[in-house]
Each structure stands twice: as C-alpha cells, then as structure tokens.
Amino acid sequence: MADIIHIIQTKYYYLVVIFLMMIGLYATISSRNLIKKVIGINIFQISVFLFYIAMSKVKHGTAPILWDKSHVYDNPLPHVLILTAIVVSVSTTAVALALIINIHKEYGTIEEDMILEKQKLDIDRSNTA
C-alpha cells in the first residue's frame, strides 16, 4: 500500500498522461463520427506532449533561458522536440479535415457506418448494371 502511494506521489504526471492518452485512444477507435475521431487524435497527441514536458522538468530548475551561470535549468531538448511536434500535429489535423470535407462532398455524411453502407450500395448497383 505504501508503495502505491509512493508511486502516485512521485509519478502522478505520468499516470494522468496515460489516462488522457487512453481517453483519446477510446475516442479514436470507438466513435463513428470522423470529426470526433480527429478530436480523439488531438487529445492523444497533446497528452504525449505533456509526457515529454513532464520528463524535462528538473527539481528547482528554472525555464531554459540563460540569465545566471550558477542556476539549475530544465532540460531544453524535449521542449525543442515538442515545439516541432505541435506544429506537425496542426498540419496533420488540417490534412485530415480536408479529407473529411472531401468525404462529405462525396457521400453527404461523415458517419463511418453510412459511408460503408453507401459504398456497398454503389458496388451492388455496378454489379447489376
């Protein structure tokens, strides 16, 4: 029991990250709506950012902007990696949304089930013709 409390006390950031990640994963795989899936992917991505930033924190460290030689600084490398990842995440979101708009133009719906039904209908029609 004491072990569990110790783990929660020292690693609560990681546990919250895992919880958020799983919410995002659930939203991505279980929802039928495509925009809901994109929202799930976003939740997942942002939780991964938190994971990296939590790893970069050093006890009693300050922000990695030099102003005094004798200070302890946080680790700047994860910050750089995540800066890159945030901008890439908005690019992927934009492309996903563009694809969804095109799907809506083609099928008139953004629900997965209905898109599959319409595809089935199209195949049947082309077989009979």
Binding site: I53, I86, L97
Partner: peptide, 28 residues
Amino acid sequence: FTRLNAVDVAFTEASVGAGITSVLMIAA
C-alpha cells in the same frame, strides 16, 4: 506547460493548439 517551465512550448500550444486548430475545426 507554463507551470513546468516550458514557456516556448506553452506559447506554441496556446497559439497553435488552442487558436488555429479550433478555427480549422469550426471551419470544417
């Protein structure tokens, strides 16, 4: 992120994640 001293990342997340992503989603 600001609490964790990642000021650059917080700045980017606030402008990109909260700003642009929401705008693009609403546009879609």
